Simulated scan of single mutants.
Amino acid sequence: MSLWELFVIAVGLSMDAFAVSICKGLSVRRLKPKHVLIAGLYFGGFQALMPLLGYFLGKQFQSLITSADHWIAFILLGLIGFNMIREARNGDEENLNDSMGVKAMLPLAVATSIDALAVGITFAFLQVQIAPAVSFIGVTTFLLSAAGVKIGNVFGMKYKAKAELFGGIVLILMGLKILLEHLGILG
């Protein structure tokens, strides 16, 4: 696999994490370097970990994983999105800074990296050198997620509750898109 092909895969895999990072940036009142680092580490770390796991799972579990990944992502993103909408409607500002805690970030990191698990399985079939591949994916996602938090925060400072509502809707739509693509409804 060429470096260019790996770059395209890395950017493609990181787009969900980038979009979610923008949403997370919307919910942070005062952006601190730790927020950028947290988003980058969660999303970049899981985008590196999942293809590694997929690589080791290989052929024996391929049909099991690919048959359920879209449902898992749909449910996780939907629940998180509905929660963001509920918080925006309730004006629940005391929980905004908690949006970067483990309870919020872990399900998002898992949901946005499930497709990377399938990519890891593909890497096993293609006999890709896994260490450089997952490192490249992780670093790319880290950088894009960190930028996404900053972009979301700049936007969110102007629109606050409406931005949180929008972020929740985006997450729900992302989950729906993943589901519909895997069901063959969207091309």
Rank of each mutant, 00 (worst) to 15 (best):
M1V: 12
E5L: 01
L6E: 09
L6G: 07
L6T: 02
V8A: 00
A10G: 07
A10Y: 11
S14W: 03
S14G: 04
M15V: 14
F18W: 02
F18S: 10
A19L: 03
S21T: 07
S21N: 13
I22H: 00
C23W: 02
K24C: 14
K24N: 14
L26C: 03
S27V: 08
V28L: 02
R29C: 10
L31R: 11
K34Q: 13
L37M: 08
I38E: 02
I38Q: 06
A39F: 07
A39S: 10
G40H: 05
G40N: 08
G40E: 09
Y42E: 03
F43D: 01
G44T: 04
G45M: 11
Q47F: 02
Q47N: 04
A48I: 06
A48G: 12
L49G: 04
P51C: 01
G54D: 08
F56N: 10
L57Y: 05
G58K: 09
K59I: 14
Q62H: 13
S63R: 15
L64H: 06
L64V: 12
I65K: 02
S67W: 08
A68H: 12
D69H: 15
W71R: 08
W71S: 11
I72K: 12
A73G: 13
F74G: 06
F74E: 07
I75W: 13
L77D: 05
I80P: 02
G81C: 01
G81K: 12
N83M: 15
M84Y: 01
I85E: 01
R86F: 15
E87K: 15
A88S: 14
N90W: 13
E93M: 10
E94G: 12
N95V: 11
N95A: 03
N97G: 14
M100K: 03
G101F: 07
G101D: 15
M105W: 00
V110H: 05
V110N: 06
S113D: 05
A116T: 07
A116Q: 04
A116K: 08
L117H: 06
I121Q: 13
I121G: 14
I121K: 13
F125I: 01
F125S: 07
F125M: 05
I130G: 06
I130A: 05
P132Y: 00
P132I: 01
V134Y: 08
V134K: 01
S135L: 14
I137Q: 03
I137F: 02
G138I: 03
V139L: 03
T141G: 10
A147I: 02
G148Y: 09
G148T: 04
G148Q: 13
V149T: 06
K150W: 15
G156R: 06
G156S: 03
K158D: 08
Y159D: 04
K160F: 10
K160E: 10
K160H: 13
K160S: 13
A161P: 14
G167M: 03
I169V: 11
V170M: 05
L173F: 06
L173H: 10
G175H: 09
L179Q: 09
L180V: 01
L180G: 06
G184R: 06
I185K: 05
I185S: 00
L186P: 08
L186E: 08
G187L: 14
G187R: 13
